[in-house]
């Protein structure tokens, strides 16, 4: 028996193509969520009509925004609508969950949630294309991510937690409510909390079939497939100083430090300050530092 109920939060925007598969895969879970909150960000396609075909289902609750809030703002709205105290599980609009996903996330969260410390559990995923064919079996293998090596210092160089694999407890949800910027994604923000004054746990299992296609709303630059020529172009831009390496990461680290200075301990502040200090370092030096931090 679980001490908490689970709310799945989904944000949709013109997602009519795959939303049914996503919702059906949630209804096929081995444990069901207490509620599924869908916030539609003012879609102009059939998303809402499709969602309404589930209308006499007690679990699914649909909200349509009057004006566009953006991905993070919309997720925040959904999180606030969810029943207070529930664990929150994030879902995208075009993925497929494997049937044991909720069960595994809930079991893991059960083990670490103390009702005080913000906690986050996440997992690996499989990348599929528009016809459900597997492109990459493991996102982590493909990105050479070793989650057991992740800590605050490594996380500052780039987020590895994918929103659609996350479950968070209520104290973490409260931190999410307080996230006052929409310049950053909720997953990168919450993972910094988890790996600093919160708790983080990963499951080395692929619990989501993540769909990569032309309509993706958030597609991280990191795994947008780039050609060799594009790669060389980027390298030249970095070397010539035309593009700043890790620019966004420095902004994120800064914003995070400002917001949570009081909650972080001396060592954590030191790690973040050290990271920010290298902002004006040479590109090659930064790359080198990133490399040694990871290994």
């Amino acid at each position: 028996m679980y001490q908490k109920k689970v709310s799945v939060i989904i944000t949709t925007f013109n997602g009519s193509k795959y939303i049914k598969k996503q919702i059906d895969s949630i209804f096929a879970q081995s444990i069901l969520p207490g509620e599924i909150i869908v916030c539609d960000d003012h879609s102009s396609d059939e998303t809402v009509t499709l969602l309404n075909s589930y209308a006499n289902n007690d679990i699914l609750k649909i909200h349509v925004n009057d004006k566009k809030l953006g991905v993070v703002g919309n997720f925040k709205k959904a999180a606030k609508i969810a029943k207070q105290g529930n664990w929150l599980v994030f879902a995208d609009q075009d993925d497929i969950w494997i049937p044991q996903k909720l069960q595994k996330l809930v079991d893991a969260m059960q083990a670490i949630d103390d009702n005080i410390t913000p906690a986050l559990v996440y997992s690996d995923l499989t990348i599929i294309d528009k016809d459900d064919n597997v492109i990459y079996e493991s996102f982590w293998d493909k990105q050479k991510i070793r989650p057991e090596k992740i800590n605050l210092a490594t996380l500052l160089y780039g987020n590895i937690v994918t929103g659609c694999t996350m479950i968070i407890n209520y104290p973490m949800a409260e931190e999410f409510f307080l996230m006052d910027t929409i310049d950053y994604l909720h997953d990168e923000w919450l993972s910094l909390i988890a790996y600093s004054f919160g708790k983080a746990k990963f499951l080395n299992e692929k619990l989501v079939l993540y769909r990569e296609h032309e309509y993706n709303v958030t597609l991280s630059e990191n795994y947008k497939p780039l050609g060799i020529i594009d790669n060389i172009k980027t390298e030249i831009d970095y070397l010539s100083g035309k593009r700043k390496f890790l620019a966004r990461q420095f902004e994120l680290a800064n914003a995070f430090l400002v917001k949570y200075h009081d909650k972080l301990n001396a060592a954590q502040i030191h790690i973040i300050e050290n990271f920010i200090k290298q902002e004006d370092d040479n590109y090659l030096l930064k790359r080198f530092k990133r490399r040694i931090t990871y290994s």
Partner: peptide
Amino acid sequence: MDPGNKKPL
């Protein structure tokens, strides 16, 4: 109800 949307069982 859309017959495609079965109730979880």
